[in-house]
């Protein structure tokens, strides 16, 4: 049974608090977010609100003079790529946790106009938050606008957030799934193939110098700019290094252009054992494990399938 907790009686836990706020009206949005902001400011917490321009207007109107103490960012300027957004939140929390008991965030992800692949990875991102910030003094409320969002996205929010907020109170979400166990609806399906006749591919082995030479010449042929080629080389090299050192020892690279995006699949016969690969901010002093995290920073999107036939890692990079 889920229980309702009175926030006034709340003993703040030291680590992450992560709520979904599923709202159907402006009033419902404000009934939860305004006390959240004001309680936070009263407690000396730092407050960040990343949401739609319309909701920023609602919040600033309702908060009145207190709005000046809240950091506002439009969601379109924040939710660029799951790995990068995660890192940006990480930096924000790190920057403020020393001088504030807690960092409160209203974080309303951007769902409109997302491709199915982006929707899958942004949903996974919501789940990953639970692991990435587990020990952070962060309280994150993620608003989901029931009026505008497809039912699938709203129901996934119940699986990716430990608690559901309503007004100033919240209750545990019965559907919540641990981030390591979380799977998206399409995770068991193969990634969509390249449109017929558009892909070029080649094999690689431990000679990654040769791999990079072939990759660079293919990237030039596909019209990739110098800066993006630079990103591609670094990112693919990290994935291929994993394949060579920890995976099957060899693999294939397959690239094609999809609109404004260069898609690059790196496949190898090995299996990837790391849970939530590349999502958790690495310890700088660790002897390994920084590669995939950097890859997520370099790319717009990363899709991973690992299992029986091997591992497939799909990198999406903007062409310009």
């Amino acid at each position: 049974m889920s229980t309702t907790i009175n926030p006034d009686a709340r003993t703040p836990s030291a680590g992450l608090i992560h709520h979904a706020l599923i709202y159907g009206s402006d009033q419902e949005f404000l009934a939860a977010t305004i006390p959240f902001c004001l309680d936070g400011l009263a407690a000396g917490d730092r407050v960040l609100a990343v949401t739609t321009p319309a909701n920023i207007d609602l919040l600033t109107g309702a908060l009145d003079t207190a709005a000046a103490e809240v950091d506002f960012v439009e969601a379109g300027n924040w939710y660029h790529a799951p790995g990068r957004t995660l890192a940006a939140y990480g930096h924000y929390v790190d920057d403020h946790k020393r001088r504030h008991p807690r960092v409160r965030v209203i974080g309303e992800p951007l769902w409109h106009g997302r491709t199915p692949a982006q929707q899958a990875e942004w949903t996974r991102y919501e789940s990953v938050i639970n692991a990435a910030f587990a020990t952070s003094p962060a309280w994150i409320v993620c608003p989901y606008d029931e009026r505008a969002l497809p039912e699938q996205i709203v129901s996934d929010a119940r699986r990716t957030h430990p608690d559901l907020m309503s007004g100033p109170a919240w209750q545990a979400s019965p559907a919540y799934t641990d981030p390591v166990a979380f799977t998206y609806a399409t995770d068991h399906l193969p990634l969509s193939p390249a449109p017929a006749g558009t892909a070029t591919d080649f094999g690689f082995d431990a000679d990654l110098h040769r791999m990079r030479q072939r990759l660079a010449s293919l990237a030039a042929g596909l019209g990739l700019g110098a800066d993006q080629t630079d990103r591609l080389m670094l990112a693919v090299n990290e994935v291929a290094t994993n394949a060579v050192e920890h995976g099957g020892g060899h693999g294939r690279i397959r690239m094609w252009i999809d609109g404004d995006v260069l898609v690059c699949d790196v496949t190898d016969p090995g299996h990837l054992d790391t849970p939530i690969p590349g999502y958790l901010p690495p310890d700088p002093a660790a002897p390994r494990g920084h590669g995939l995290w950097v890859v997520r920073q370099l790319c717009e999107l990363l899709e991973i399938r690992t299992g029986r036939p091997g591992t497939q890692i799909r990198l999406h990079l903007a062409r310009i």
């Binding site: 090299n237 990290e238 700088p284 002093a285 590669g291």
Partner: peptide
């Protein structure tokens, strides 16, 4: 001409 993430990590490790 090229350095990978592990190579950059070696710089940090030597500095430490």
């Amino acid at each position: 001409e090229f350095i990978d993430v592990a190579g950059i990590r070696e710089l940090a490790s030597a500095a430490s």
